[in-house]
Design a protein around this nucleic acid. Sequence first.
DNA 1: CGGCGGCTTGCATACGTATTCAAGGGGACG
DNA 2: CGTCCCCTTGAATACGTATGCAAGCCGCCG
Lengths: 355, 355
Amino acid sequence: MGDASPPVPRIGSRMKGKATSFDIAHLAGVSQSTVSRALRGSPLVSEETRRRIQSAADTLNYKVDKNASNLRRQHTGTLALLLFEDPTADDSHINPFFLSMLGSITRASAQQGYDLLISFQQFSRDWHADFAGCQKADGLILLGYGDYQSHRDKLEKLVAQGTRFVRWGAVLPGQPGVSIGCDNYAGGRFATAHLIAQGCRRIAFLGDATPHYPEFHERYRGYAAALREAGLAVDEALQADAETTERAGYEAAELLLERGVSFDAVFAASDLIAIGALRALAERGLAVPGDVALAGFDDIPMASFVNPALTTVRQDTGKAGEVLVEQLLRLIRGEGAESAMLPAELKVRRSSLRL
Amino acid sequence: MGDASPPVPRIGSRMKGKATSFDIAHLAGVSQSTVSRALRGSPLVSEETRRRIQSAADTLNYKVDKNASNLRRQHTGTLALLLFEDPTADDSHINPFFLSMLGSITRASAQQGYDLLISFQQFSRDWHADFAGCQKADGLILLGYGDYQSHRDKLEKLVAQGTRFVRWGAVLPGQPGVSIGCDNYAGGRFATAHLIAQGCRRIAFLGDATPHYPEFHERYRGYAAALREAGLAVDEALQADAETTERAGYEAAELLLERGVSFDAVFAASDLIAIGALRALAERGLAVPGDVALAGFDDIPMASFVNPALTTVRQDTGKAGEVLVEQLLRLIRGEGAESAMLPAELKVRRSSLRL
DNA sequence: CGGCGGCTTGCATACGTATTCAAGGGGACG
DNA sequence: CGTCCCCTTGAATACGTATGCAAGCCGCCG
């Protein structure tokens, strides 16, 4: 007597937790294997059985347990987005350009059926370890301006560990892993050539010009190339470092003004820098574009709303997100991916129009 | 002799996949249980053993498998953020206010040691099912303006299923679940009272005033209250619907102008609407704040950069993210959480200053 | 009429970790 | 010197799903 419990481990008894595939199996009068097959769309299950299982699953409000499923299949259906920011950006305002990228990446991965895990990272931390082998995500997307030189070792470690990742940033030869970026060189060249075409001859560059910030460095190279092509000299006194914040742009412009050098145009390495510079110029009573023509980079939403509207180099964030996700999925599927450079497009607005 | 293989299932043989706790155990000369305990910081392990295990783990570059761990512990260490947007926003520009919230929530959850899963949702879909029981996340954060009435049933279903979630939005009595929001009523009242104090008497309201958009409705109620307190009548001809986009703001302002009613101020239910209205006013040659004083709501980054800088009601997104995550974690820990209303703060800038 | 192949289904096991239970060893105290 | 208890460790099992393997059923062909 009382031999009920030993043979049946737990079917039907557990009311607390969510329903499992065993519960469905019990209700539909089939085995757990068949339930699993039916719900994953295996062709091995007959149509009638599939319907019965489906209706049982609906009844019990059953959802496949992602953890168990992922563990068994050794795959997560999740991508991780690592967003790097300089620790100095403590005002909790994320760079709008990256926010735009974030939105685009989110959409792209959703479209491909992947969830997206977001994580903010400090450059200083051992970020590469956190996501590498722990099966949190099938692949990584690295996003952030910055000094990749000092993190090259970490990237190489990722490659060595077989971690799948793509990086947004400057596309340069000899980099570890797959990089996607826009054509910063061409963008810088277009913007500067445009300023020259507007009659400007003394064009300043605001933004770090060292190779430590590869994107900015490429933009600077484009700037210098355009100057040379027009027969103009590159004057170091016309360059001032700035990280990509409005405040840094303001300060860099002030520095330039204090130097006492004359200039009739500013090419800023990012829109935030340009907007900061715009404020500094306005405070000195300099008219834009009358006294100083101004161009930025990124085409953040704010750029069209400042006064005067900002001429800038547009990076197609929508396309960028798609390409990043697409290439990452290729890596995950083992198809091999390639670095790619997206075109940059000059958006002319009032801030640069002198003619 | 030769009794090596039967008792030991697979230790040491697998070179392909990542190292498991068994590999660590083997290397450190202990059992898998001890490895698990050591790495989770259990006090049961001796200090010397812990060190040996730690060093073995470092050597093999071992990372705890999140899926297995989560499956075993029945918990994910992940929160999911569901961001709702009107399908009309196809230009891939997410509302800046929500982007700011997103940043803040990301930080807050990272600070609490939780990962954040981001998902964009269409109101139309059966979103409530996707995350409810599948163990993807321990809790949900719902974010988005909108018509909660038509989704009340879904919220109630979530509550019934025992899903832990918090919602950003209007805090009203009798709502299912926990809601966090700012004091939209007070914000609308402050902004309108400020416009009145600037000498305005015919103040328009741009934004949906129906209860379908509870936040906007509350702001409208605050607007109406301030008018009444000043002995001014609420004129329906001074109200025009607009969803929260720049284009809608532009069109609503145009509608207002075409109506031919006179007005000397505009209170827009969001900054995006205000910025659109600003453009419409400028095109008609109306000076802000000279001819029309203008105030918005949200204090998105753009608000300080438009010309003239926009007076607005600031919602503290940083605080909001913290509170959302904090209350959600309380729910997850079974401590019970309460809806809360955050203070709204008037930020006076040039767009409203007539004195 | 026997055997063979296609179509479904069930059984058993593996995924990698966390935790309960039992056991071993050593010291302290009576 | 014996007993008891604390400290540390190992063995075993459960978490819920996916899948290789084998078996049952049926019809068809030889």
